[in-house]
Design a protein around this nucleic acid. Structure first.
Length: 504
RNA sequence: GAUUCCGUAGCUCAGCUGGUAGAGCAUUACACUUUUAAUGUAGGGGUCCUGGGUUCGAGCCCCAGCGGGAUCACCA
């Protein structure tokens, strides 16, 4: 253990002195709370008879001691409120210990206390709790960063170091209320989606995270081992194949908020564990699903912001239906003025080169189209936009297009230049599915580490028959970044993955 | 993985051309019964990320490592 800092030593000494005074710094009894800072602030008016016997609990975040009276701030989960303490009211008798020693010296910033008293306005007009008694609820042995806000609302000495904020999120949450709000919004987003789907009768389910075969996406997995069964297990990269098994089993609609794991690079858009929601609905197709996505995401925006407009960085994104729809070819035509819909592989490669897109010899038709799109279209799609009809080679689990050869019935929604969802009419032809898996195996043999593996049990399930089904995956972290205007995935994950901390 | 910037007190940050460590807040002591970035006075607090090197002398220059951010590449 590292040597204690001066302030940590002081706090430990204060703890000892409190114990000597017979004060338990970590009492076990409940402290009854009957009001919150926010509630009092929004409801109390001077002269009211309300809030005259309040009881609040939280951390003491600042102290302004003026001799025999003091002002301090209490922060509970709803916000901060000032309180006032007067020596002779706290200590009516001869013994002034509770004020002179306990309040003024032995309490430290960050300690949890409970206060009882009444609400009033000070001479300067600040809503304040006049404290009649207080109680230490839990002592903080480490000092918090001190962030101050002046009367113009300017923040001084903000706690901003990203490394410390992510490693010690608990501290970040204590001192940065806007961070607490981001995660409230994230939960609200989940609730909004859950509500939308539950109302429609879809069943929220749980499927295995530890899987004997990883499937449903193209990615490298985390590998682990079960001792008793002596078998290799993988952390799921997607839950698609399990949810489809449930559709085979007879449910009309199933969804799961799925923590998925991919053993790949990290960036401000990528964390090794991340969350997708996947939804599968029987007897529907991708056109139907497009309407659902529009409606559901529009609802999320309204539930979070009261409007369909959301500010993200420099942009204002409007989720109001209907969203723009392009086929892949139309989108490329619109942004490059080149019609590639009739091109063979050679002219595609030439076109890609002329557009300064990176090409190499291993790229097939599908990959070339994808590169052109990624380079020249995606970065320009700020407002929510559907891109439909992808080449079959890139979508081994999607159904072939009903009228366009070589294409599958698939769409992605792009927003703020990033994919936020991926969806298709699910492939339910077991023979076609086997062939697609087999061509994936070929890719794997040629060294593609992300190629899908063949899942015999999934094929067996399809052979029992899966109804026509529309499937959807939404990257919840990406959506949260947009909905809460955060620049990095680390800012919408409580505990983003970090390297090992320095031992010093 | 590549490039680039960064790492100094509990927090936020200065630190010049290499000359022996600074500020504000926090902390300690005293004063102060309606303050609010409270105030006044006086003090204490440092493995300058780690390890090497150059130098009479390194927070600063060089090399290596660790950690973080940004950008790029693969991917959601």
């Amino acid at each position: 253990m590292q040597a204690l800092s001066e302030q940590e030593i002081n706090r430990r000494e204060n703890l000892k002195k409190l114990t000597e005074l017979g004060i338990d710094a970590y009492p076990s009894d409940t402290f009854e709370v009957n009001a919150t800072a926010e509630e009092i602030k929004s409801n109390f008016k001077a002269g009211d008879n309300t809030y005259q016997e309040v009881s609040l609990a939280g951390r003491m975040m600042s102290q302004r001691i003026m001799g025999k009276a003091s002002f301090a701030e209490l922060m509970d989960s709803t916000g901060r409120i000032q309180f006032y303490i007067n020596r002779d009211e706290i200590c009516p008798g001869e013994d002034k210990t509770m004020y002179n020693d306990v309040f003024k010296k032995l309490l430290d910033l960050g300690d949890f206390i409970g206060i009882k008293g009444f609400a009033f306005y000070t001479q300067t007009g600040e809503l304040t709790i006049h404290v009649k008694e207080f109680k230490l609820l839990s002592k903080a042995l480490r000092p918090l960063p001190v962030v101050k806000i002046d009367d113009e609302g300017k923040v001084h000495d903000a706690f901003t170091d990203p490394e410390t904020r992510y490693r010690m999120r608990y501290v970040d949450l204590v001192v940065n209320p806007e961070v607490r709000e981001v995660f409230r919004q994230r939960t609200k987003m989940y609730n909004s989606i859950r509500e939308y789907l539950n109302v429609r009768g879809y069943l929220e389910v749980e499927t295995p995270i530890l899987q004997p075969l990883y499937g449903g996406a193209a990615a490298r997995p985390f590998k682990t081992h079960h001792n008793t069964l002596d078998m290799t297990l993988y952390m799921r990269i997607a839950n698609e194949l399990y949810l489809k098994r449930l559709i085979v089993g007879g449910y009309d609609g199933v969804y799961e908020f799925s923590k998925d794991f991919r053993n790949e690079g990290m960036s401000r858009f990528h964390n090794p564990e991340f969350t997708q929601i996947e939804l599968y609905v029987a007897y529907k197709d991708y056109e139907w699903m497009m309407n659902l996505v529009e409606e559901m995401v529009e609802k999320v925006a309204i539930d979070l912001h009261g409007t369909t407009e959301v500010k993200v960085g420099e942009n204002t994104i409007n989720f109001k239906r209907p969203w723009k729809r392009y086929t892949m070819f139309e989108a490329i035509l619109a942004f490059t003025q080149i019609d590639i819909s009739e091109m063979d592989e050679d002219s595609l490669r030439a076109t890609a080169k002329s557009l300064k897109v990176h090409v190499d010899g291993t790229m097939g038709k599908a990959k070339l189209i994808d590169e052109i799109f990624g380079e020249h279209v995606e970065p320009k799609l700020i407002q929510p936009t559907f891109i439909t009809d992808y080449p079959v080679e890139m979508s081994p689990l999607a159904k072939k297009h009903k009228s366009k050869p070589g294409m599958v019935e698939r769409f992605e929604a792009i927003c703020n230049a990033k994919e936020i969802c991926n969806s298709f009419s699910e492939l339910n032809d077991p023979i076609d599915q086997r062939e697609r898996f087999e061509s994936q195996l070929e890719l794997g043999k040629r060294g593609d580490e992300e190629a899908m593996v063949l899942d015999e049990d999934f094929l067996r399930a399809l052979e029992y028959g899966m109804p026509p089904t529309a499937g959807l995956g939404i990257g919840m972290d990406r959506l949260a970044m947009i909905m809460t205007n955060q620049n990095s995935i680390q800012d919408v994950l409580f505990f983003p993955q970090m390297k090992k901390e320095n031992p010093s």
